[in-house]
Write a protein that binds this DNA or RNA. Structure first.
Length: 514
RNA sequence: GGCCCCGUCGUCUAAGGGUUAGGACACAGGCUUUUCAAGCCUGGAAUACGGGUUCGAAUCCCGUCGGGGUCACCA
């Protein structure tokens, strides 16, 4: 039997890191065994803007390279893959359950149910449906239905049974049916509920392995009861621990990652044209996509949460993951997500990326920031290439090119006030800048090696350390204190622009002086 | 509160009866250095606690404590 896994997001508008990890595990298992990875959309909870809320999720999965074999846009033998389009199937299965006497209509009003729930809460008892409608005679059911009374469909759950199964990750687990009660399968409006729709779909789509977050563990017992009622062999279940917040075992949420949302990163998003309220949170995949992470790095980093290859391997490229992924090596306990480690891994992947791919990957970000045009002409392309080369290992994510080297692509320099204060507004600086301008103007050829000679020569002549010349030169030409090596920086900038900027900086300090 | 799951450095993890409990991120110190990175070297850092079983326990059993999940006409 071929392995079939599925990922079943509901269209919420974005992909959460924890959800992505679940998707990766499902995808990896299918690929490992040459099976199929199905994408199904759990959209029974009638949401207004379905399409817009779905697209970012599909885009995220595509970005990661988690291609699905069946699902939206990919027809297959078990479609449709939107639950909202499968209502007929659910109706059929619901009917089957009723005709077998495994489910019954319940006419209790939401108010009545709410009262039962309140009572349970006050008595500090877990809530379970009383089963009041279960005993209704068939004729009475018929009468009420014909009278147009709204009703939900409930599963008849036999009391005092212990349901057991062996979870691939957790091992043997069990639960008493007394803790479950007659759960609702279909809403009064005819829409199926999660547990019911999931079983119908997993069964009819021939899913062999259900890999999902541990928060679904209690649902699994209900689902097992449903498989039994349908007389269908259930799939294997693997409940993976949820992804926790850094330094905690609490489920990851937006709030937990606030400290990773640095001012510096927010500034990157703003440079890319995001409005402040649109800036994604570090719990969302979008955050990493737009900061310029590589899909392979994110895939690797997330796959390592709760799963390991062995006792030492951190870098697990896509192909290696596919060849070695196994459910058996998934941890039982929650793993906290560590953005720092993901960042480190990203640096490793970026470092190994061939130059031309770095260039190609950088271009969309420069365009979004309005620093280069579209299309990019050959001279701009070669400028980008030179900047990236000069950046070397400093470039960890694509937006680093904007932060460390944005000034290469602008006519006017934005002088960072702090840099000016710290480096340029010093007594010796006017002299240094003036001489630099003079010497560089006559320099031929204008390359890094010769620029270095000029700078070091000048330092010696003035009887100061090289840093006293280098730092002002950097700030004067780039406006900032960080960036590539200053000699290459000036070379790439070119003589004309370097001189202009020295001029401007000089004016700036002299004006400050006066 | 009932039921269920989980507990190895701050974090990700390895070891599944016998190791000085290993690696990685992060952190600290040093070297290098024109900034920022990178690189190299060094360091601190863990089996939640208490009982058993055993020649021997992180590992098996029991209890305690702690964390988490779940108890919807959400998924």
């Amino acid at each position: 039997m071929t392995v079939r896994t599925r990922f079943a997001p509901s269209p919420t508008g974005y992909l959460h890191i924890g959800g992505v990890r679940t998707a990766i595990f499902n995808w990896a298992l299918a690929r490992r065994f040459g099976g199929q990875f199905v994408l199904r959309i759990d959209d029974t909870d009638v949401e207004r803007h379905r399409e817009e809320a779905l697209e970012p999720i599909l885009a995220g999965l595509r970005w990661l390279g988690l291609h699905w074999d069946e699902g939206p846009g990919v027809d297959g033998p078990h479609g449709p893959y939107y639950q909202s389009q499968r209502l007929e199937v659910y109706r059929e299965f619901a009917e089957r359950l009723r005709s077998r006497g495994r489910a019954y209509p319940c006419f209790c009003t939401p108010e009545e149910i709410e009262r039962e729930r309140q009572e349970a809460r006050q008595a500090k008892r877990p809530y379970r449906y009383s089963g009041r409608c279960r005993a209704l005679p068939t004729q009475e059911q018929q009468r009420r239905i014909e009278a147009g009374m709204p009703y939900v469909l409930r599963l008849k759950v036999e009391p005092d049974r212990v349901i057991r199964f062996v979870d691939v990750v957790l091992g043997p687990v069990e639960r008493n049916t007394n803790d479950i009660g007659d759960v609702v399968l279909v809403r009064a409006n005819g829409m199926p509920l999660y547990n019911f729709a999931t079983v119908v779909d997993d069964a009819s789509m021939q899913i062999t392995h259900v890999i999902r977050a541990q928060e679904h563990l209690t649902n699994t017992f209900v689902q097992l009861l449903l498989y039994e009622a349908f007389d269908i062999t259930p799939p294997q279940f693997a409940h993976v621990p949820y992804v926790a917040a850094p330094g905690s075992k609490a489920k990851l949420s937006k709030r937990h990652l606030e400290r990773y949302q640095t001012e510096e990163n927010v500034a990157r998003f703003l440079k890319l044209g995001f409005k402040p309220e649109e800036v994604p949170s570090p719990v969302m995949l979008d955050y990493y996509i737009h900061l310029g992470y590589l899909p392979d790095a994110v895939l690797n980093g997330l796959a390592r949460l709760g799963w390991s290859l062995d006792d030492r391997t951190e870098k697990i490229p896509r192909q290696v993951l596919i060849e070695n992924f196994s459910l058996e090596r998934i941890h039982k306990s929650p793993a906290s997500f560590d953005p720092d480690k993901l960042y480190w891994l990203q640096g490793e992947y970026m470092r190994e990326l061939p130059l031309e791919q770095k260039v190609a990957g950088t271009i969309p970000f420069l365009q979004r920031a309005g620093l280069v045009g579209d299309p990019v002409d050959e001279s701009t392309r070669s400028l980008i290439r030179r900047v990236i080369e000069a950046l070397g290992d400093r470039m960890k994510v694509f937006t680093d090119v904007i932060v460390y080297g944005g000034f290469f692509f602008k006519d006017e320099v934005d002088y960072d006030p702090k840099a000016v204060q710290k480096v340029l507004l010093k007594e010796h600086v006017p002299v240094v800048l003036a001489r630099l301008r003079e010497r560089l103007a006559g320099l031929e050829p204008f390359d890094a090696a010769h620029i270095e000679e000029v700078v070091r020569g000048l330092a010696e002549e003035l009887g100061v350390g090289a840093g006293k010349v280098i730092h002002p030169l950097r700030v004067a030409t780039s406006g900032q204190t960080i960036g590539p090596g200053v000699f290459e920086l000036v070379e790439i900038l070119g003589k004309e622009r370097a001189l202009q900027r020295l001029e401007r900086a000089l004016a700036l300090v002299q004006q400050e002086d006066a």
